[in-house]
Every structure is written in C-alpha cells, then in structure tokens.
Design a protein around this nucleic acid. Structure first.
Lengths: 229, 229, 229, 229
DNA sequence: TGTTAACCGAGACGGTACGTCGCGTCTTTCT
DNA sequence: AGAAAGACGCGACGTACCGTCTCGGTTAACA
C-alpha cells in the first residue's frame, strides 16, 4: 500500500444515501474509529484513482486494493462504484471555496472564468470533476450529485452580482444564476463537447459576453408574478 | 445472412478512418456487396442500440445480436465499441442539415437554439448524440469524431452571420464561430453538466445573450495581426 | 447450485498442486462445503467427458456445462484444461488396486497383462487413461501426473516378483520394475503406437516374454556398486 | 519467407486420399510446376513446424505463413491439419532406411534398439515422429498413417531374423515381427507413457530381453493352422 | 500456339473455444 | 453472533484458429 496519509480534511462527513436498508445501513450506527478511518481511506482511494485512471478506468477492485479495504466491505457500505463516487464527491463539495472579489463585476467574472478554465486545464485538478461529469452520463446518482454541486457553487457566486448592484455597476437586476451560468457555459462547451483549447482569452471573452448580455437586459428577472419558478 | 435490406438511409457511405493498419484494414479492399451490407446492418444496430440502451448499456455483444453480424467480425473490422461508435457517428455527420433561415438574425439564432434544445429533449433524437458525448469521455477516437462533427456543424452555421451582415442587421463583423458557440453553450451546460431542464425559454435567452454580446462587440475579430493564436 | 450430491467416491481428497500462487490458490483456504462440492462435480464431469468425447473433444466449456460450475470458476481454480485433467487424474490414482495373486508368477504376469489389455480394450474403461496419455503429449503437468501414476502402479506390482522369489519359482533376483514394464510394454506399443489389436493371446505372449527374459537373467540387478542409478 | 530450398527428395508423390470428391481432387490433374512446388513448400513447413512447435502448437495458419501458401489453398487441397500431417508423413516414410547389419543377431537387435533410443532422444529428430504419435490420438487418418509407417518399418527389420536363421544363430523360427516389436516396445513405453529416461543401457536390455524370449521359444510361430489371425 | 480448365491468391465472414476482467452475491470461517 | 475474506455466478471482453464462400488472376496441359 502506497498511500498512508489519513485524510486530514475529512471534516463533517455528510449524511449519504446508502441503498441497502435505510435502518441498518452499515457505517451509520458506529461512525467512529475504524469506521471513519475506513471511509477516509476509501475516499482517498476513489479520488486518487480518478486522478490516476479517470472514471472509465476506475473499478471497485482498484479502490479495494488501493484503500486496503476488502471488496465485500465496499459493496456492503457503498453498494457499487456509483455510491463510492457520490460519497467522494460529497467531500469535494464541502470545501470552503468562495468566488473571487476583485472590486468590479468585470474583474470578478473574468477571474471566475479564468479559475474555471485553469481548473480544467490542469490535469491533476481536472481529474476528479471531469470524472464526475463522465460518471453522470452513466449514473443517476452521480448526475444528482453533480447537479447539487454546481447549484451550490452557482449560488455562492450570486454574491458577485449582489455586490455589483450594491456598487451601482449594474443598473439592472439580472438573474444572478443565469449570469454565472452564462460565464462558464462556453468554457464547458469547449472543454467537454467540442474539445477545443481553453485559455485566458476564451475565459475573458466568456465573461465579457455574459456581462454584455446582462447589461443588455437579457438576464433581467421578469418583474411580474411572485411564485413563478 | 438474414438481413438483406440494403440500408436505405445510408447516405453516401463515406470513407471511414479505420485505425488498425491502413493496408490490411478489413472492409477497405472489397467494399462492395456483402461488406457494404454488413456495415449498414451494423450501423443501424449501433444507432438503434444507443436509442434503446444509451451508451453505457451498449455492448459489442448487443450490436452483434441486433445486427445479425457475428461478434468476431465486429472485432475484426471495428476493433471495439469505440470503433463501432465512431463509424456510426460518421454516418450521422453526413446528413444534409442546414441552419434555419428566418429572415432575421434574431430569428435564426433563436431557431437554432430551439432546434438544439428540442433535439436533446426528445429522447429518441438525443440518444445518439448524447451517447457520443458520453463516449468521448472514454475514447480518444470518439472525442475526435465529436469535435469534427461540431466543427462542421458550426461552420455550416456561419452563414447565419454572413446573411445578417449582408442584411445590415449587424454593423460589426463578429467571429461567427464564437457567436454560434455562444448560442448553444448555455444549453449544453444545462443538458450535460448541471442537468437542468431546457425549454424554449432557455433557448431564446441563450440566443438573445449571444446576439447582445455580438452587438456589444464581444465577438469582434481583432483587426490586427495574423498569427495570433 | 443445482448439484448437491456430496461426491460419494471422492476418496481421500488429496492435497493438490495448484500452480498459480501457493498462497492465494482458490480452493485451498476454505476447502469445505461448497468448495468441496464444486471440486467433486468438476471431477465427475471431467472423467465423464473423457469417456464420452475423449481428450481431443474435451473442453473447458463442456466441463462447465456438464458440471454446472461456471467457466470462470474453472479457470480461477484449475487454470485450464490441463489442470482439470491433472486434478481428475489424482483421483483416479487413488484407488485401491492391487496386482493379481494367482499362486504362480506365470499366472500373475499373464493376469496382469490380460488386465491391462482388457482395460484398454473396453472403451469406457480406457477413456480416462488414454486421455491422460494423449494429454501428456501436450502438457508437462499431465506428463508428470502420468509418470507418477505408473510409477506407483508398477511399484505395487513388485510384490509379484517378491512372492515368486519367496516361492522359489525364480532362482534369480530380477529388477521387479523392469520385469513389470517388460510385461506391459508390448501391449502399450500395440495400443498407442502401432494401433494393432490386443487380445489375450498378445497379453499372454507379453507375459511369457518377460518371464523368459527374467529367467535368462536379463533383468538381474548388477550385484556390484551402490550409487549406480 | 525464410525457406526456399525446393524439397529435392520429393520423389514419388504417393496417392493421397483427398476427401472432397475423388474425381476433382485438387492437385491431381495438373501435378506439375507450381502445384508440385506448392506441395513441397507445404511439406517443409509442416515438418519444420512440428520441430519448432510440436503437434499441439501446429496450426493451418502457421503452415500458411511459413510456406507462403494461402490458407484457402491449404484447405482446398489438404482439407485440414490432419491431411497436411498425413501428407507430410507419407514423405517421411519414403526414405531408404535399412536395418543395421552387424553380423550377429544380438548386435543387430542392440543396434536397432540404440537407433530407436537415439532418434527419440535427439529433440530435432524426435519432433516429427513424436508429433505424429500425438496426432494419432486425435485423428484417425494420422493413426492409419502411423500404423502403416511402423508396419513397413518392422517389415524391413524382418531381414535381421532371416539372416540369423541363415547363420544358424537361432535354431527356431520366431515371428520376426513380434521379435522386433519386443525390442522396441520397452523403449516406447518409457518414452511416451512413463516418460523415463532412455539410454543405451535401456536399449541393450530391451534387445537382450527380446532375444532371450526368442530363444526360449516365446515368439515361435504355431506350426498348425492357416487362417489363424 | 492459343485456349481453357485447373489451380492459386486474396478478402470477408460465421462459428467455437479460449482465457481474462470486473461486477455483485453468497457462504465458510474466524474472532 | 457477526463481520471479513474466500469462492462463486454472471456478463462481457478481445483473441486465435477453424473452415467456408466468393471473387479474380495465373498457369499448366491439351487441342
């Protein structure tokens, strides 16, 4: 076994949705000591495996070997590869990331776009998120986790718009979520669909595009109605 | 051979890029008669299988059964599932799709966006392209095919911008490719990353966003320089 | 599991020599219950298959079907057809055969020869040993098993010579192993090399030949020397 | 292609029993020129293949590559591996081997035994005959060819006995065939069944045994009867 | 000396069996 | 008693070789 670092940043250990039986789900009754260490080792192995092999190369077998936890145990607690992945993703989503704060909305959006581009350009950093995106094509639970992850991320970004409004940089009140999605969407398109190179130029253009559209009122929230979701 | 119907919708039957060895690749030397029928049957089966099972559920085994072509033959000619998929995608790319022509750039872009949304909302229509996108995460060849496919599609769309310029709807000369990508990118984001619902409203907003940005000069081609990549 | 009969004629269930890795060889750690039943079912199937199809017709596939044990399991535990055969042969070698005891050496040798001839003339009885002989041409392990089998058989026969010496039928002290080999060798030649018919007449002649040679001193052990191998 | 020597000793080209249709058997109507060259190349390849890989490793595929003759042609003319082997064996049986002539029967028999032992001890020399013996376990035609080969060989050896009788070394008239078989049978037993080492000592003992038995009258031809087979 | 039938080269395919990998379940064994 | 680890069922993979079919191109034998 090559990995021994005991996952320091394990933290809160969010509740996950274990399949087998809701009452007796293994790992829920006695979450201390060995149980916790097991989970940590497994998460490390999953994330590490994603970096090394990517999602298509990942297997329960591999996680078992790398984590030192027996295959049967993995199946008992996580059900299958999907479960392992989702659990590991939970962890990833629990970081304390905050959107950039440069003083201007243009700066913030550009920084956000550049961060996104940089993340997915760096092989090591991109491995895990890319893997989850790939997994979402094959697993409903992974898709759910992915959606939740980005929803939360985009929500965190809304402060950018709020600050801009407060600063009077924007005389409108655009849908912050739509704006943020607009910023990153061209990057994701190039990264995962058309597989074109993505650099700072593309990032800046994406940010500028979103801002221009916002200024033109494209993202304005229809003033009417209340409950309209 | 039980199948004899000669693949009506086969189109041009273009040259394919067989990997193994350019000299001895099966299916290249004697591309007539049975060979052609085999290919057609296999393509049908692949596309059909994608619609029925999606990419993760597709297997060489299944294609063999559905097409009536023996497993061994599939491996000989296409190597693996990847090859089957790429070949089938070649076919898909060879249709005579043309971008909408509504008379105004706003109409064209909105129509384009709505078409895209509709395609990926209709389960049957979405199956094949979705599968290829999924496959691209696992296969370099699929990724190449995917890139080529969209590059060609986007190129076909450039006429929309050209027409707008000719009509004097645009007083600028934006990068048509960037503009078109901007139109579809929010849709792809919602479809494949955040897995949010995509309807006409989202389509229109995407089109409007791209157009607003274009009008603001975001996609303008830098007039200077030649080699600037 | 459909088979449950607990392999009555299993005998001692001897230690087998699993090749792959002595530590992790499947079937060694938990040799009870299902594992034992599996082995018994497989042995039955191998022996039965030999009788039905002979060695050239035998396949792992067939053993799997006949035994009700999955192909993969066979590969895991026995590696290949060779291993299956060797294991089954172990069983065959563990019977309680004893050489004939007629009261005279001539009678004993003739009986031995006739038994040999009869064994290989009866299709059902001959199937297994013939198969192993055939297999020995293709497999080192089968050859080893074969050698061990006959070595042990010939050793059991040495008592014939000992009794003859005790009865003073022989005034010499011939190499019992050589004598016994001499008895059966013409039969094996006709059976497997020249493929000539073998009956009681041939058996008796072989026995007589060996006895005559023994009486002439051909098999006498050189009285000298120690280390002469 | 590495082999080019055009099989000088091709000789008589015995009639073979081709399966398909006795009238149109390929290779019979136009047996000259290319046809003959093809046959020679194939025979070389078969024999060479046996030496290199042994029977179990031999395949039609291999013969095709090694001989430079296309697989289809091989199937057309020889039907299958069996046919290839039988044809090659025909060639081997057509040499001008003659039994040793040392001046005494003891010398002759010992020389014969030693020759046999030497042949099967030398790896290169043993390959072909061993392969045929192995093949005979799997193919009726190979078994036939094998029987015919040894029958002819043993017949050639009968002159040894005739000379001995003429020299008055033997005062009996033993069945020459039985005697010769007796000489070689212990060697074949050790070579192919018990897989024990075979050297000059064993050879001499085998010859002595046969001679002693002959002198004791074991091989005497029963003076009575005619039709006794 | 043509010509024609025979032979050969070549490509593609159906088919059987092989040996392997990974998944997920069951069951023996050990604590 | 209950989990850990071993053994298994199962589906699919990719490969090797077999034997067949169908072309088309040479070439040996005979008119």
């Amino acid at each position: 076994m090559e990995r021994d670092e005991t996952a320091p940043a394990l933290g809160r250990n969010a509740q996950q949705a274990d399949a087998p039986s809701p009452a007796t789900a293994p790992g829920t009754r006695r979450p201390g000591g060995r149980t916790a260490r097991t989970r940590a080792a497994v998460r490390d192995a999953v994330l590490g495996g994603l970096v090394e092999l990517g999602y298509p190369g990942l297997s329960v077998e591999y996680v078992a070997e790398r984590s030192g936890i027996h295959r049967t145990t993995l199946y008992r607690r996580w059900g299958n590869l999907e479960g392992l992945l989702v659990d590991a993703l939970d962890l990833a989503g629990e970081d304390s990331w905050t959107p950039p704060d440069t003083g201007s909305i243009e700066g913030d959006l550009r920084a956000l776009a550049r961060m996104t581009a940089a993340t997915f350009t760096d092989a090591a950093a991109a491995a895990a998120p890319t893997a989850v995106i790939a997994a979402a094509f094959q697993s409903e639970r992974a898709a759910d986790a992915l959606r939740a992850f980005y929803e939360e991320r985009f929500a965190r970004c809304e402060v950018i718009v709020a600050r801009a409004v407060a600063r009077r940089e924007l005389d409108r009140n655009p849908d912050a979520g739509a704006l943020v999605r607009a910023v990153v969407s061209p990057l994701f398109l190039k990264l995962f669909i058309t597989r074109e190179p993505v650099g700072e130029q593309q990032a800046d253009q994406a940010a500028d595009m979103a801002l221009a559209a916002a200024r033109a009122g494209v993202f304005d929230i229809p003033p009417t109605s209340a409950g309209a979701v």
